[in-house]
Design a protein around this nucleic acid. Structure first.
Lengths: 192, 192
DNA sequence: GTTTAGATCGACTAATCACTCTACAAAGAT
DNA sequence: ATCTTTGTAGAGTGATTAGTCGATCTAAAC
């Protein structure tokens, strides 16, 4: 067999269906039965993979986090300065969020909900790459603002803002690219 | 009778109870029966004031928005420059969010949820004061970044970031005040 | 004092939902 | 070929919940 085993496919289908319905109707607005239906599996199958609805929600969050982390690479690429590395990752992150609006929307909903408290620490911590980069920027005196946690917060929310703006204002491809490039310079001006 | 009429008190109690429980357990995690119980009223009373649970949730959002709008005043106070007005309102908003963490948390949860789409336009629009100030700043060439919607988005998310950071890092009163003042200068540096 | 309109109560209901259970199918392993 | 494990199905269930309803209370109006 060339394709992956059936199990994995169904599991992916369930996550995809859950993502779609959660972003459209919210957590409480989407019953597990609808998720199973949308995924094309039986109700019992869903509970074979995820013991509870909460577990499914958290697994979906973890899955999205993992996918996003593949876009982030803080290792220098040739002779990159810290600013270059930051720019490259900033642009990757924005593009990912624009290409995966459901994932972005779900994450926003999730992290502002009480579900966040249920996430196991090891999953929550795995995104320290950003923090490491900020720390290095501060050490190298390219970033003047401290502490790193504060900078990371400013950075994250800046990304959200740009995503939000670009989603609402439907700009041409070229104009959008320009706004992204400019917004990074704006951010960097603030931090350096 | 010195106090307000009973109706108003009960209605306020219901909103307060809903706010408390929603931020703790989420929308779907808090049944209307628990809200009534927490508010010290009967189940039927809740539905006397709000025809549905959704209506209650939206009313709570509108109520919070109104309360916040009382903190915002974009009319010049004496010889204030636009930057001064912006600073004054920025600091008011941050302080309000720190003094009313539940309201802030609820709002964050609400605006990232599908409930936002259910809000009647006239309630949603009432916060154009911020946008007006930004437009004036741009016209007066004190703000270099455009368009106004983009600036407003950056501003809002900046406020969230500072709130988030200050809530997590428990700083002394004085240090906190310093961070707030500095963060406004940071923001202004970015925009001007 | 009587009327009237709204406020309050809490038992009740109809529907829904998360989750279980059992039967069966598929596919390896030996 | 037989056994074992794992996946899949879908009807079923017990608990929960949003919302209803009619009775009672309150207080203001006349």
């Amino acid at each position: 067999m060339i394709s992956r085993s059936k199990q994995v496919d169904k599991q992916k289908d369930i996550l995809a269906a859950a993502l779609k319905l959660f972003t459209e109707y919210g957590f409480h607005g989407t019953p597990t039965s609808k998720i199973a239906q949308e995924a094309g599996v039986a109700n019992g199958t869903l509970f074979h993979y995820y013991k509870t609805k909460d577990e499914l929600i958290i697994a979906l969050y973890a899955d999205i986090k993992t996918k996003l982390s593949f876009c982030i690479d803080i290792k220098p690429n040739g002779q990159e300065s810290i600013k270059d590395i930051a720019r490259r990752n900033y642009i990757s992150a924005i593009n990912w969020s624009l290409e995966n609006p459901s994932e972005f929307r779900f994450t926003q909903q999730f992290i502002t909900s009480p579900y966040l408290a249920l996430v196991p620490p090891q999953i929550q911590e795995q995104s320290s790459a950003l923090l490491d980069l900020v720390k290095e920027g501060i050490r190298a005196k390219e970033i003047k603002v401290t502490p790193p946690e504060y900078v990371a917060e400013l950075l994250n929310s800046h990304l959200s803002a740009v995503h939000q703006y670009l989603t609402r204002a439907k700009l041409s491809q070229a104009r959008q690219k320009q706004v992204i490039a400019d917004s990074f310079e704006l951010l960097w001006k603030m931090l350096s």
